[in-house]
C-alpha cells in the first residue's frame, strides 16, 4: 500500500517544529506501524536526511517506550494496542496519516516524536513504592492477600507507564497513571502503612508537575494499551480527600 504521512519534525527542544510530508510506497500490511517508519527512515538516511526520531524498544507492547499520536489518537486507532503492535492492515491504501508526539506541556519534545516523560517517574519517586529494605522482608506467605485484592492490584499494576493517558486527555491530566499506581500499592496489605502518605505525596507531585485535572472524558481509558479502568481515578479522588481530611491525626 501507499501512504501519505504528515510527521511532526522538531530538531530539539528549543527549535520550532512543523509537519513535514512524506510519501511511502510498497508498504506491506503485515508491517507494524514502527516498521513502516523504519522503512521511511532507511530511505531518509540513504538520502542524507535526518531520520524521524521516535522512542521504541521492546516492540511487543510491554516496555512503554513507544509514544506517538496517530491521527489524533495516542498509539493509534486500535483498542488496547501500543503503536509498536499496531499493524498496517488497519490502514487503507492511499490514506493520509498525521503522526505527532505525545502532546502535553509536562512532556517537552526532545526531538521529532520523542518526548521527555520523566514527570511520570518523579510521581513514582514521590511515593510510588513500599519502603522495604532488601533482606528485611518476612516470608512471602506470612501475608495472606485475598485473591480478589491481588487480582485488582495486578489490574492496576499492568500499567506500562507509556503516558498515553496523559497524551489522550483533553485536559492533559495524569490521573489514570497516578491512580493506577496508587491503587496497586494501596489495595495490598503490604502497602497500608504508607497509604495516606503515599496518596498525598503522589497526588501533590502530580499537581506540581503541572498536569491537568480530570473532567471525566475517559479518553485515557480508551487510549490505554492495557485498558486500565477510570474507576481508579474515582477512588483516588476519594482517598486523597480522605487522607487530607484526616491528615491532622498524624
Amino acid at each position: 500500500m501507499n501512504l501519505k504521512l504528515h510527521i511532526w519534525r522538531q530538531k530539539n527542544n528549543k527549535a520550532a517544529g512543523a509537519f513535514e510530508q512524506y510519501a511511502v510506497s510498497d508498504i506491506s500490511e503485515d508491517m507494524s506501524f514502527l516498521e513502516m517508519l523504519d522503512v521511511l527512515n532507511e530511505d531518509l538516511i540513504v538520502g542524507g536526511k535526518d531520520p524521524v526520531a521516535f522512542d521504541h524498544d521492546c516492540r511487543e507492547g510491554i516496555c512503554g517506550a513507544c509514544s506517538m499520536t496517530i491521527n489524533g489518537n495516542p498509539h493509534g486507532p486500535e483498542k488496547a494496542t501500543t503503536a509498536c503492535q499496531l499493524h498496517m492492515r488497519k490502514f487503507n491504501d492511499g490514506q493520509e496519516i498525521y503522526i505527532e508526539p505525545f502532546k502535553n506541556k509536562s512532556f517537552p519534545v526532545i526531538r521529532d516524536l520523542v518526548v521527555d516523560r520523566s514527570a511520570l517517574d518523579r510521581i513514582i519517586e514521590s511515593g510510588g513504592y513500599i519502603s522495604i529494605k532488601t533482606g528485611s522482608a518476612p516470608d512471602a506467605n506470612d501475608i495472606a492477600v485475598p485473591k480478589a485484592k491481588s487480582d485488582v492490584a495486578m489490574d492496576a499494576a499492568a500499567c506500562i507507564g507509556c503516558g498515553a493517558c496523559v497524551a489522550a486527555c483533553p485536559n492533559g491530566a495524569a490521573m489514570l497513571f497516578t491512580s493506577a499506581k496508587l491503587k496497586h500499592l494501596n489495595v495490598l496489605p503490604q502497602g497500608q502503612a504508607e497509604k495516606k502518605k503515599r496518596t498525598i505525596a503522589m497526588v501533590e507531585q502530580m499537581d506540581k508537575e503541572g498536569f491537568g485535572s480530570c473532567t471525566n472524558h475517559y479518553e485515557c481509558e480508551a487510549a490505554c494499551p492495557k485498558s486500565i479502568s477510570v474507576e481508579f481515578i474515582s477512588e483516588m479522588n476519594f482517598e486523597y480527600a480522605k487522607a487530607r481530611a484526616t491528615a491532622y491525626r498524624d
Binding site: 504528515h6 509537519f19 499520536t69 491521527n71 489524533g72 489518537n73 486507532p77 483498542k79 498525521y98 505527532e100 502532546k103 502535553n104 506541556k105 509536562s106 489522550a168 486527555c169 483533553p170 485536559n171 492533559g172 503541572g210 498536569f211 491537568g212 472524558h217 475517559y218 479518553e219 481509558e221 480508551a222 487510549a223
Partner: peptide, 12 residues
C-alpha cells in the same frame, strides 16, 4: 497544559 492535536479524534 493540553495543547490539542492537528487531527482531533476521540474514542470515548
Amino acid at each position: 497544559i493540553a495543547s490539542g492535536y492537528k487531527v482531533s479524534n476521540y474514542k470515548a
